[in-house]
Lab assay of single mutants.
Amino acid sequence: LETFPLDVLVNTAAEDLPRGVDPSRKENYLSDEDFKAVFGMTRSAFANLPLWKQQNLKKEKGLF
């Protein structure tokens, strides 16, 4: 999966995202380093959170 810089994904409308980016899964296009910096946890820890908590975190970080 291709990764993009944080500033390309945060608070970006679906139509302005790079081609192929799923707007409902912007976090998947962050590098592992950016993911950890944004969410303060690994991808696996994030995946283990309840869906509502994942969505709330994504909203807080501008990735929803």
Rank of each mutant, 00 (worst) to 15 (best):
D7Y: 08
A45N: 09
S44A: 14
R43A: 04
E15L: 06
G40N: 14
L6G: 02
E60F: 06
S24I: 07
E15G: 11
S44D: 13
E2S: 12
A37S: 13
W52M: 09
D22R: 03
A14D: 15
R19F: 15
A14T: 13
L30G: 01
D22V: 05
A45H: 11
G62V: 01
Q54R: 13
A13N: 12
Q54D: 00
K58A: 04
Q54I: 03
D32Q: 07
P18W: 01
M41F: 05
T42P: 08
W52H: 10
N48D: 13
D22N: 08
N28T: 10
E27Q: 04
R43N: 01
T3S: 09
T3E: 06
A14G: 09
N28V: 12
E33W: 09
D22K: 15
L6F: 11
P5T: 07
K26T: 08
F46N: 00
L9Q: 02
N11E: 07
F64M: 15
A14V: 12
A14N: 14
L30V: 04
L49W: 04
W52G: 08
F35G: 00
Q54V: 02
P23R: 06
L6H: 04
K26M: 15
K53T: 13
A37K: 13
Q55T: 14
M41G: 00
F35L: 01
L57F: 06
D7K: 09
R25Y: 11
A14L: 12
L57R: 02
G62T: 01
L1Y: 15
E60R: 08
K61E: 04
L63V: 04
E2Y: 08
E27R: 01
N48I: 12
P50G: 03
Y29D: 02
D22F: 03
E15R: 11
V8F: 15
L9K: 01
K61M: 08
L17S: 04
A45Y: 09
V8K: 10
L1T: 13
A47W: 10
P18Y: 01
V8C: 11
L30P: 01
R25W: 08
D7P: 06
F46S: 00
L51Y: 13
T42E: 13
V10K: 10
S44I: 13
F46C: 00
L9G: 02
M41N: 00
V21A: 04
L1M: 13
D32N: 09
L30R: 01
F46T: 00
R25K: 14
R43I: 04
T12Q: 08
L30F: 02
V10D: 02
K58W: 04
E60N: 07
K26P: 05
A47G: 11
W52Y: 11
N28Y: 12
T3A: 07
E33F: 11
P50W: 01
W52C: 12
D34F: 02
K61H: 11
A14I: 12
G40K: 10
L17Q: 03
T12L: 09
V10P: 02
A47K: 12
K58G: 01
P50F: 01
Y29H: 12
T12W: 10
G20T: 09
K59F: 10
E60L: 12
A13F: 07
G40T: 05
E60Q: 11
F39I: 03
R25A: 10
E60C: 09
R25L: 08
F46I: 00
V21M: 07
G20K: 05
F46W: 08
Q55E: 14
L6K: 05
L49S: 02
